[in-house]
């Protein structure tokens, strides 16, 4: 199962919009990878599931330092002072990306319902997917640091 091109394009646009408007950091797409690279350095993974016309999840991946920097930018505080706020902040970033994607897709097809974010923090975890799920991983450069946004679509 291939992920429709318009969903990937809207995911990229949604991610860019959220970063430029709320995080106030420029991000540039590195590679809309068809061949999924390993998620090296992913220590924070925030997931927002969705269901309805389509079923799947948007997952945001970043290293711990990058995640702290994003949280600091979002909350208007120095990254070094970010601590307990990081998980909620990265969850909110992912919520906004998934919500913006949902809104954009709602002009093309019936609206999805999205869930509240779940944030996993650690350095030794593996995510396993349903064998027939389709995935695309969009990698971005944020001022020299890497972030990734993954879309998982389950077959319905």
């Amino acid at each position: 199962m291939d992920i429709p091109r318009e969903i990937v394009a809207n995911l990229i646009r949604a991610t860019t919009d959220v970063f430029e408007t709320m995080v106030l950091k420029r991000i540039d797409l590195i590679d809309p990878a068809k061949e999924i690279p390993p998620r090296a350095g992913s220590q924070v993974a925030a997931t927002v599931g969705f269901t309805g016309h389509r079923c799947g999840a948007v997952v945001f991946h970043a290293g711990a330092d990058v995640a702290r920097e994003i949280a600091g930018a979002l909350l208007a505080m120095p990254a070094a002072e970010v601590n307990g706020e990081m998980a909620d902040a990265i969850g909110e970033v992912t919520n906004m990306i998934a919500g913006t994607l949902r809104t954009r897709m709602a002009s093309l097809e019936p609206a999805w319902a999205i869930a509240v974010p779940t944030v996993t923090i650690g350095s030794d975890f593996v995510t396993r997917y349903a064998t027939d799920a389709a995935r695309v991983l969009c990698a971005f450069d944020m001022e020299g640091q890497g972030i990734q946004v993954e879309l998982i679509l389950n077959r319905q």
Binding site: M22, L74, L75, A76, E85, D88, E92, N95, V116
Partner: peptide
């Protein structure tokens, strides 16, 4: 708002 982050963003 249930998100403390979003409350803080709005208050800021």
């Amino acid at each position: 708002d249930d998100s403390s982050t979003m409350r803080r963003i709005i208050i800021n």
